[in-house]
Design a protein around this nucleic acid. Structure first.
Lengths: 245, 245
DNA sequence: ATGAAGCGGTTTACGTTGTAAACCAAGCAC
DNA sequence: GTGCTTGGTTTACAACGTAAACCGCTTCAT
């Protein structure tokens, strides 16, 4: 009866690139990962549960296991998808086109952008068990490591210089971004804005108490910029020295 | 089993003649926290469970709840205890006695020492939900923040300079140490030493493949030293400029 | 058309987790 | 003795991750 028509309509819509109107969208791995990221963004990492994630997708928990091997593997997929999100960022170049400084700067800001877009999920990038010593968080993707190293060497960096730069770059990113998203969680965490709060137990620490306001100021952006500039200076130095063994 | 220190405390106490021979040592908060740290060190953070921790202490899980409010609170206690462990480190000063550079350097190495002593537990210091914007990991203790700020100001740092230094210091520590303990876990993780291994799927990444060996080298110690030196230079600069608004 | 195969989802079930609540055994005050 | 307090156990429960079995589709060979 109606089935033939339905199928034809669905096919036509599918060919048209539209979403199937009435029936379940067939739930692929990408949708699961995206839903997981959204869930973490909204409810926090601790709230993520297979059952609840299934619920958010209108499906039972066990259905997810057709697409992900388990929760650990799901989380791995989440960090993959996060770093892969940088590939879509057209501000980030996959090779230097305007000098290596520009290249590194764009890459750094790309990583920072995904960190700020997903503050609750970003710590995952740092805390997942490491796969190899040459995959340093938060650059958890062979593609980007390759791009970084190749990019630098194409701009005159030696092997040693490129590797050293890679190490310094990841350390810089991890420290700054982890702290930035961390304090970002602390700012929105307390319910009231507490404009002039007298925190309890702070009277034993006069320095902290006195500098309370300046310590609470959010200067993460300029700090990031300055530290990045400093890093570029160091990289420029190590670039033009033959070897430093 | 390489080391059987499960009842070491009981043995020591027993030799001292402190505790009655057959009766239980009465299990205080400190013992629980220490046992938790040991457990994490040996079995990993994921393996830590209230029941198993109780078992390691020769007690039922629920007994722990007389001393800790819950698992979260237990983990908070663990990081407190870790940073408090620095107080016992006599290499670390609580105020500058030989210049601020020496002071900062000793503090940095103190933090690094606890990170390396407890690589599996250290990520906790970074990932615990933040309590206040002025408590930046890994310096998660009002005492140490106070000591740091007071120490710098006693050596001629202005308010702004001290705060800026505090921020840079924590970012530096967090990035470097988290990465160091992370790769430390990756080194001992794979079972065989795989001296000359051809990793699968690396042929699409010629740079990474070629620099594999240099990337796997452990230069964490010298990197730490160099980056710390660089940080001190920056701090010296910001110290002797009036204000940078 | 008809049956076999298999893809994609659900149901059920099991062991483990964190923890509330009730329970109980000593030690101490009176 | 009778109680109270302190510190541990037992029991219980909801929620978790996930293995296994169980369908209802669609698809395809015959």
């Amino acid at each position: 009866m109606t089935s033939g028509d339905d199928v034809k309509d669905a096919d036509a819509a599918l060919v048209n690139g539209e979403a199937p109107p009435s029936r379940h969208v067939p739930l692929d791995r990408g949708r699961i990962l995206d839903a997981a990221i959204s869930y973490i963004d909204e409810q926090g990492l601790a709230g993520l549960t297979m059952r609840r994630l299934g619920q958010a997708l209108g499906v039972e928990a066990m259905a997810l296991y057709r697409y992900v091997a388990g929760k650990e593997e799901l989380l791995d997929g989440v960090v993959d998808r996060l770093v892969a999100g940088m590939q879509a960022d057209d501000q980030v170049l996959d090779r230097p086109s305007d000098g290596w400084q520009d290249f590194v700067q764009r890459l750094a800001h790309g990583v920072r952008r995904v960190a700020l877009a997903h503050p609750k999920a970003f710590p995952l990038v740092a805390s997942r068990p490491p796969e190899a010593p040459w995959l340093r968080p938060p650059l958890r993707s062979l593609e980007w490591v390759e791009a970084f190293l190749a990019g630098l060497e194409s701009e005159g960096f030696s092997d040693e210089a490129a590797v050293a730069a890679y190490r310094a770059f990841t350390s810089f990113l991890l420290g700054h971004l982890l702290l930035e998203v961390s304090t970002l969680g602390a700012d929105l965490g307390p319910l009231d804005v507490m404009e002039e709060s007298v925190e309890p137990g702070l009277e034993d620490f006069p320095m902290v108490s006195r500098l309370r306001r300046q310590l609470a100021e959010d200067k993460a952006a300029v700090e990031f910029e300055e530290a990045l500039e400093e890093l570029l200076n160091r990289m420029a130095l190590v670039r033009q020295e033959g070897d430093g063994g």
